[in-house]
């Protein structure tokens, strides 16, 4: 057991070496840390022996022989695969992907449920207020602005559905 000093003069004790051995063998240490352990191992037979034991264990773990597969292993699995279901789903999946990949031109804040609900709420209050307050033109304008996000999102959805139906009809 001894301390090793690296190029920077920092001592590496046996305890620190022992703590870092797994990472050293895993290759997850940086160059400086690896070098410190490497130099310590060269000078310390005790830590070198610990390194060799751990290295031997790693080697054995990584070369454990494979257990042979039992006969008929594949058949039961391949017989259970729902091939037809995948084939039937394929056109639907392709449509979903096509719709998903369509360019989104509405900004996220317009599509947000919070914006749409708030807008509809404001519009409802404005329409109700027309009965009690003057300035119907202004209130109608506020109501129109309020429902606008919900209207454009609905129109976009309808457009996509129409486009999807058209693609289906074209086969």
């Amino acid at each position: 057991m001894r301390d090793h000093h690296n190029a920077k003069g920092q001592p590496l004790g046996c305890h620190e070496c022992s703590e870092g051995l797994q990472d050293y063998l895993d290759g997850t240490l940086d160059k400086q840390q690896s070098l410190r352990i490497f130099l310590h191992l060269r000078e310390c037979p005790g830590c070198q022996a610990e390194h060799d034991r751990l290295h031997g264990l790693f080697e054995m773990l990584e070369t454990m022989p494979d257990h042979p597969l039992p006969e008929g292993f594949d058949e039961a699995i391949l017989a259970s695969v729902p091939y037809d279901s995948y084939r039937q789903m394929e056109p639907i999946r392709r449509e979903r992907v096509a719709v998903f990949l369509e360019e989104e031109f509405l900004p996220a804040w317009v599509r947000s449920p919070v914006t749409r609900l708030t807008g509809v709420g404001v519009a409802a209050v404005s329409v109700a207020s027309i009965m009690f307050l003057d300035g119907a033109g202004l209130l109608f304008a506020v109501a129109a602005i309020g429902v606008a996000p919900q209207v454009v999102v609905s129109l976009q959805g309808m457009g996509r559905r129409l486009s999807l139906n058209q693609r289906r009809a074209e086969g």
Partner: peptide, 13 residues
Amino acid sequence: CKRGEEPAFAEIL
């Protein structure tokens, strides 16, 4: 596999 091609499942297996 998702297109239902049988040999693809055997390949993965």
